[in-house]
Design a protein around this nucleic acid. Sequence first.
RNA 1: GGGGGCAUAGCUCAGCUGGUAGAGCACCGCCCUUUUAAGGCGAUUGUCGAAGGUUCGAGUCCUUCUGCCCUCACCA
Length: 477
Amino acid sequence: METLEKTRIEKLNKLKDKGVEPYGASYKPTTPLKEVLDNYSEEEEEGKKVRCAGRIMTLRPHGKAAFFHIKDWTGKLQVYIKLNNVGEEKYDIFRLLDLGDIVGIEGGVFKTRTGEITVFVDDLTVLSKALLPQPEKWHGLKDVEIRYRQRYIDLSSNDDVMDLFLKRSNIIKSIRTFLDDRNFVEVETPMMQPIPGGAVAKPFITHHNVLDMDLFLRIAPELYLKRLLVGGMERVYEINRNFRNEGLSTRHNPEFTMMELYQAYSDYNGMMELTESLISGLSRELYNNFKIPYGERKLDMSPPWQKSTFSELLLKYAKVDLGDEGGLKEKGKELGIEVEGVHKDVIAEHIFGELVEKELWNPTFVVDYPVTICPLTKSCDNDPNLAQRFELYIATMELANSYSELNEPLEQSKRFHEQITDDDTEGKIDEDFLKSLKYGMPPAGGLGIGIDRLIMILTNSTSIRDVILFPLLRQQS
RNA sequence: GGGGGCAUAGCUCAGCUGGUAGAGCACCGCCCUUUUAAGGCGAUUGUCGAAGGUUCGAGUCCUUCUGCCCUCACCA
């Protein structure tokens, strides 16, 4: 409503009339509010002066004095302002403040008779006058559409949302530390690629004007990271966005954050160890426990994690043998899956998605996929039809994907060309990548972890939109 | 794209079988110098998502559209 804004603009002008600059410059140094609360001790700190800044969240005026809470991203602190103490001029300025305004305060710390640590204001500075009101203090902001579209209000009014995104940042920091400790280096590879590769997905297309050249937002960094292996960078990782022009759901956002890493002289077994150590370690770091809540249930992240082969699980939950083409087709038809002219392994993959994934609750490594659906993966020594690949499932979600990387150039070339005729995808092969392999890529383990999904698991969020600051929504008309 | 649900004040929500649009908080005015969902008194607050239709009369019933949520399909 317009009048709410209007009355605030009037107050803004009154502040200006009083010579107050309502949009202050720097205000330093300030003590984080949590620190004020943590450091307080009755004997020594009574009356100790502090300087703090934050947004006014509650306001309880009592005529010639008032209590209010200010909030910063560490916590909430009560402030007491009294006419006698700050003088009429300051107090009149204070009277023009509203919920949502950002102020700086200076004063002595004390405890009220109800026992709350409070700052007794000596000086007050207006740092930002808010023209629109914050959501209601008691219920906060619940409307998910406003929460996603105007995340700034969500963050400022819902503490748990702020906590979650700070947690997200810390998790990613921990991942970096973990990898740095294992001597990985972080790199950045092209987000705009002339040939989108490294995964099967529809890309976004964009155009470079000066070069008059179509480019694709990357669907995966894989082929570039492997070039770095060829170049001799033995342990590389990248945490960055991938873009896939496909549907949206509680588990899919068109741009999402992926961590991909490659470790020379390792293989998918090495990647399994790394994955388990990383993710179980994160759950312990966050919860001090391997048993963590997710949705209505609990997840048991205690290592070692269960390991099952693709075909075992297919047999167990779909009652069909990976080698039984007829059985797979029949099962596929039952489930309404396209089977005509489709390779049996692709059918198996779909059946797996339909019947097996939903059973995989606690962390499970699914290993040894049919090689036909793994064009970038080395096949198993004891069975050329199986690939040295695992996918990690947690809470029925595919969370990670890993291979013993195929480093044989001629075989890689052959698989690319076969895949193209099969899939009729974009029809382009990254020939430079194939060329790079001919210079010799060390055997290596590769791993991709969907970071948003990992954050979902670790923060008990059931929608990917709750862990992405600005999820994609339709433009409002 | 298919199926299901939702949209009422700035926010959180009521609104029954169709009969003059409500509450709490916020906002506005007055009182109040240790309160904490401060309190007391008073006043205001609306394109009921949009457009059509049925009806004497629509927030309510019907149709279409828009947006969001869930779900299925594609995928990670």
